[in-house]
Nucleic acid binder design. Structure first.
Lengths: 138, 138
DNA sequence: GCATATGTAACCATTATAGTTACAACAAAA
DNA sequence: TTTTGTTGTAACTATAATGGTTACATATGC
């Protein structure tokens, strides 16, 4: 199962996107996510590196760098995920066995197709969509 | 990143599907996968439980229980995966914050759509397709 | 009986995650 | 200028999952 980083990252982004004029801190966000502020800062750092938000040392200044409509969930997913590949393939299969010799490239195609399907769906959903969905329950 | 269980499971199934009349053992499969026989038996046990193969104590008797055309990669995926959910959601978000209160159900919808896209793609590929792909490089 | 196979329990090393403390660097208010 | 508050990071920890391994009970068939 995939970790909760994407989950937390989206939570962070929605809080930044829906904040009023009063700035929010990692401490405040941590209170809503229910975790440690450092966990928030760790993930916000990745969102910053991906160009989705900005932040500044010493200031409570989290800001979206794009419109919510422009931020796809795929962008967030790719910002926080460490590995490019969703599936991993066992390494060093026996090259003297014809199956072992060719299984990796075959699996690679299969897994890439699956991953592409996932990513296309994530690409169809934006932060704005999520916030709208959230707001209906508000 | 997802573990290599699916990868190994598919390797096992292709070996069973393409074997000649001489039966194969977990030890032989392990030689092609390049791992320990117990790892093979652990995963073959899950495939057996899912009704994809049969095996018998004391005999080298791995056999497919369905035609390769009928075995989808989704079936294999679901046979070896421990968690039903692909993504996990951080728990206990603050119920006193309107975002924290509603984020879980919103994320749930988003993640389910993504997971469904992945599974639909896996459902479109069968073991027979993979073996055909493998054979072109044979 | 004996060699051989699967099924499974038990243990270990490695890795990733998530939480935590501590502190440097910086900003802004007092 | 001092003080308070904030981000960014390093370092450490507990926990869990994975994959490899040994050991052995149990069943098969020569």
């Amino acid at each position: 199962m995939i970790n909760t980083k994407l989950s937390v990252a989206i939570h962070i982004l929605t809080m930044i996107a829906t904040k009023s004029d009063t700035p929010i801190t990692s401490d405040f966000i941590a209170g809503s996510v229910n975790t440690n502020p450092v966990v928030i800062r760790r993930i916000s750092g990745q969102l910053k590196k991906a160009g989705l938000i900005s932040a500044h040392v010493g200031k409570a200044s989290f800001t979206l760098e794009k419109e919510p409509e422009e931020i796809t969930i795929l962008m967030v997913y790719q910002a926080v995920q460490t590995h490019d590949d969703l599936f991993s393939i066992h390494d060093n299969p026996n090259p003297h066995c014809w199956i072992g010799k060719n299984i990796q490239s075959t699996l690679d195609k299969t897994f890439q197709r699956a991953q592409r399907a996932l990513e296309q769906e994530l690409n169809n959903q934006t932060l704005a969509d999520l916030i709208k969905n959230l707001s209906t329950n508000r």
